[in-house]
Design a protein around this nucleic acid. Structure first.
Ligand SMILES: [Zn+2]
Ligand SMILES: [Zn+2]
Ligand SMILES: [Zn+2]
Ligand SMILES: [Zn+2]
Lengths: 165, 165
DNA sequence: CACGGATATGTTACCTTATCACATTTCTGC
DNA sequence: GCAGAAATGTGATAAGGTAACATATCCGTG
């Protein structure tokens, strides 16, 4: 089965309001199906992450949540973010110590993050071949992979163009 | 050119004293060739990382350095570690917020880390196919990769065996 | 509806990781 | 020997993350 949505990604111009809206609705559907509660804080945290195609630090999210009347202590943000990550609605971007909304909630995927060091945009690329290659390399050492982190730092198309001039 | 050393890795039983010693000498050679100074703190930091096939936090390294008569403030460790990383003598393991000695200093390689969640051992696997797959995925979005982080968390052969019982 | 356990939130306090800024020393080329 | 560069020591502080416990909300059951 092919992906039902054309792959709107951070580096392609697109109607992001629509992109975010669609993703939020998918997330709600996923939560409903899994029988987990996308409570107000959690939903708001996800909306905040969805505003832009970039990763946000927990404290940045916290500030936004606090401004919206939620608690202003770290656990408020960390708990909401943990929930989102645990349920596949957001990902943790290790290189940035930050979090990004998952762009394909519900779809089985091994996320690969492409992080532009110039503009900070983060794209989530599906890359099964990367995962396959990783599993192969691990297998040769007898290692059993449970979770994988694959992140690339570099330049997005736009910033690469600009740098070339 | 094939790798000159048989791939001694964390998950294979081997004479680690020899393994560490060899790697340290390779590192010294690399530093000499690059014309950078592997000063006492830096060398000691590398030796500390080389003691075991696992990643160490900066503060753990710092404690060891301080015990050896070096400074006991964070920058002491962070600077030494930064030097090692910048010169390809150590790697940063993002998932653990820690550092591991590079097992193949001088060799061009795209490191992939296999982290056992049970015993904490970390193996550095060379995996060009993983890098190729990543470059391919990035290219499809027009992204230019400069640096990549590939880390897998799971169980090493030994711990997997033990878990199965 | 009432009750009780499970789940979620608020809040305090604290720990770990990482960086800045600046003074002092050590090295290196001249 | 001397000047500039590189490396180190040190204090202070920013940024990221968690433990623990009290309070509130939800939800199935009687
Ligand atoms: Zn979008
Ligand atoms: Zn960019
Ligand atoms: Zn070894
Ligand atoms: Zn293990």
């Amino acid at each position: 089965m092919a992906s039902p949505t054309p792959p709107a990604n951070a580096f392609t111009q697109h109607d992001h309001a629509h992109c975010a809206d669609t993703t939020l609705h998918k997330a709600e559907a996923v939560a409903a199906e899994k029988g987990v509660r996308l409570t107000p804080v959690r939903k708001r945290a996800l909306e905040i992450l969805l505003e832009e195609h970039r990763a946000m630090g927990a404290y940045e999210v916290l500030d936004r949540l606090a401004a919206d009347g939620f608690g202003n202590q770290p656990p408020v943000a960390y708990r909401a973010l943990e929930f989102l990550v645990d349920n596949g609605l957001a990902h943790r971007v290790r290189r940035l110590n930050a979090f990004a909304a998952c762009m394909r909630p519900g779809e089985e995927h091994a996320p690969v993050f492409l992080i532009c060091r110039e503009c900070g945009e983060v794209a989530e690329a599906g890359a099964d071949e990367v995962r396959q290659a990783l599993l192969g390399a691990a297998d040769r050492l007898g290692f059993h992979v449970e979770r994988a982190t694959v992140e690339a730092l570099g330049l997005c198309p736009k910033c690469y163009q600009e740098a070339a001039q």
